[in-house]
């Protein structure tokens, strides 16, 4: 498989604080990879550095084989690296339709119309609420909208930051099923999660982040059986 995203020795932080010390992560075309770690491990900082909302201080990032270290978000979105951020970040004052439409901001109008129909096909509940303000949706619906908005951008790689956070167990199941379905259609996914058990179930490979560094990586099956990991994250 060809590497789609390659991050090597990435260093990033805010002000005086260095959060990512040296992080290397790779995602291949069509692959589903999980980035695990507890709260404060640096997962969200990693996402910001990759998406271009935070300038990296060192290291290298390649996307689809091209050097994209420090590239602006506008460019990364245009090239298909799409992030669905933690906390959904939908536009509360805009309708569901407008939220989705803005998801395709860097795409042509004709394709946006097609993509809107496709997203509504995936999330019929959003289709029923197209004229409703996004701020009035439930948490689960907002998460669907955030993912739908990401799909409107025609991603080659979809980075999902804590998509299961704050959802009911039933919705979490639904969400992981959906992620699996998107991947089955060939979409590469980087799943950034605290929910270790379910993430390892659907991912092919996984990385474990601690204090701004990758401390373990490998196939999801191998990590599931790693005694140290079990103790630290699975409470077994």
């Amino acid at each position: 498989m060809n590497a789609l995203l390659e991050v090597e020795n990435l260093v990033a932080g805010y002000g005086q604080t260095e959060i990512l010390r040296s992080v290397s992560v790779a995602v291949a075309e069509g692959e589903i990879v999980s980035l695990l770690g507890s709260n404060g491990a640096g997962k969200t900082t990693f996402n910001h550095a990759v998406a271009g909302t935070l300038a990296p201080r060192g290291g290298l990032m390649r996307f689809a084989g091209k050097d994209r270290t420090g590239a602006p978000t506008t460019q990364m979105v245009a090239e298909g690296l799409i992030q669905v951020p933690e906390g959904r970040r939908v536009f509360p004052n805009l309708s569901v339709r407008e939220n989705l439409w803005l998801g395709g901001y860097r795409r042509g109008s004709a394709r946006r119309t097609d993509n809107l129909a496709r997203v509504v096909g995936i999330f019929p509940r959003l289709g029923e609420r197209l004229t409703q303000l996004a701020g009035t949706l439930s948490g689960g619906e907002q998460q669907m909208l955030a993912i739908g908005r990401g799909l409107m951008a025609e991603p080659r790689l979809l980075i999902l930051d804590e998509p299961s956070l704050g959802l009911s167990p039933l919705l979490v199941e639904e969400m992981f099923g959906l992620i699996r379905g998107l991947n089955a259609e060939g979409l590469a996914i980087l799943l950034v999660e605290q929910n270790v058990v379910q993430s390892l179930e659907i991912a092919a490979r996984a990385y474990v982040m601690e204090n701004g560094a990758i401390v373990a990586s490998g196939s999801a099956a191998a990590l599931r059986d790693d005694p140290a990991l079990k103790k630290a994250y699975l409470g077994m």
Binding site: T74, I82, P85, R88, R89, F91, N93, L102, G103, Y105
Partner: peptide
């Protein structure tokens, strides 16, 4: 307009707007 929607989006949710590729 698209830019008008982008303006309203940035007003309430700047990070979300950045992540859909709004400058």
């Amino acid at each position: 307009t698209d830019l008008g929607r982008a303006i309203r989006a940035v007003a309430k949710e700047r990070l979300g707007a950045q992540l859909v590729g709004i400058d």
